[in-house]
Computed example of a mutant assay.
Amino acid sequence: MGRNLKNALIALLAPLPSILLFASFNHHHHHHPIWSWCHHHPLLLVNTLFFFNINVLFWLISLIQSSNWMIDVYWTVIPVLLVHYFQSHPSSQFNLGRSRTVVGLTWVWAMRLTHSYFRREKWQWGAREDWRFTDLARQYGKNWWWVSFFAVYLIQQVFLIGVCMPMYIVHSVDTPWNIWDTFAVIMCITGIVFAYVADTQLHAFVTRNEKLKEIGNALVPNLDSGLWYYSRHPNYFGEQVWWWGLAIFGWNLGCTWVWIGAVVNTMCLGYVTVLVERKMVKLEYRAEEYKTYQKRTSVWIPWFKSSTIQVPKEKAS
């Protein structure tokens, strides 16, 4: 069996323990006392499933394969599983229109991010792990096998459950649709579309450089067109607009603390931005160009170029 097919099979089978256990709970919770705590504590159940199925099982798979590739794929899948879990839980109550809207938006977001991931990975399952995990593995050396449980998997539970809390709130409160729901939809769709366009422009840029490298021509040092003309990380901006739009659904239903997940996720992405930019300026062929780009271009929020830096005519053309 080829590596790609084997990894695809592993990824498809990996969430089955949680899916089967939850299906059993939904079928037997009225008849078996062992399920009573699950009925009254949906968040406790989902965190238990996440801990054993994602943190422990995925970690064990990563030790066997010496790669943490699978958590990247499941960043796009877990929110879909969570929104359906909250919707179908026996204790759920919700406005049907709002529920269907959030479920639909989550599917669209997941398909966008999944497509972007596999397009970037040339449609391979597990061809490589995130470069940040590889750097951490070098940093921790022989201790990485146990550090990775916390740095790669347990931390994902905090992030994913946190940013997906609006999905729980939407399926815990039944109130009529209002103007803030409409605003949240607009924000979510804007974020998804913005991130898709930015990722597509980045993919075209990377593909072009790969072709230039194949024929021995000089690489284009920096992407400074399209949405990337106005923002150094428009894909990150679009992703954040999606999560903040989702948080508005929860806030609108009276849960002010729902912002915590979006705030933590934004702080995390801010740190990732720093890591990415440090990596950019270490590449000799693009270092000077990127430093100028940093000085003239907004980090996340799209904005006009700064006029404080004078760019030579040959580089401005």
Rank of each mutant, 00 (worst) to 15 (best):
S298C: 06
K6A: 15
N235T: 01
Y236R: 06
A184H: 01
C164I: 01
F25R: 04
T114L: 03
R112K: 11
L269I: 15
W123P: 10
N47A: 06
W180P: 05
W242P: 13
A137D: 09
Q65E: 11
S67L: 06
L269R: 12
H203Y: 09
V299T: 14
W144Q: 05
Q65V: 06
C188N: 02
Y229V: 08
S92W: 00
Y153R: 00
E314G: 11
L57E: 05
Y85Q: 01
W144I: 02
R128Q: 14
Y293H: 08
W145V: 11
K305Q: 13
F94A: 12
R119Y: 09
W109D: 00
E239H: 03
F304N: 10
A287L: 07
A127Y: 07
F249L: 00
N209K: 01
N47I: 00
W257Q: 12
G104F: 01
I71C: 00
P15L: 02
Q157R: 08
S148E: 02
K211M: 11
Y293C: 08
H40C: 05
L57A: 14
Q87V: 02
E284M: 14
I215W: 08
H84D: 07
P221F: 15
V83A: 02
T292Q: 11
V73Q: 07
I179M: 15
E210T: 06
E289H: 15
S18T: 03
P33L: 06
H84E: 10
N68Y: 00
W109N: 00
S36D: 08
K282G: 13
Y117E: 04
P234Y: 03
A14M: 07
H89A: 00
R112C: 04
A14R: 09
P79V: 00
L81A: 10
L49T: 06
S317D: 07
R98L: 10
D135P: 07
R296V: 02
H171A: 01
R286Q: 10
K279Y: 08
L202V: 14
V264C: 04
Q240E: 08
D224I: 12
S225K: 11
A151W: 11
N53Y: 03
M1R: 10
K282A: 13
W300N: 05
L96G: 14
Y153N: 00
K213R: 12
L219Y: 09
S91Q: 01
E289G: 09
L43M: 14
I54D: 00
I54T: 04
M165I: 04
F249E: 02
A247R: 02
K313T: 07
M165T: 10
R128T: 14
A262W: 09
Y140N: 07
L136A: 11
A11I: 05
V193L: 09
M280A: 07
D181C: 01
W177M: 10
N143D: 14
H32V: 12
D174P: 04
Q124T: 07
S307Q: 13
D135L: 08
S317G: 07
W69A: 04
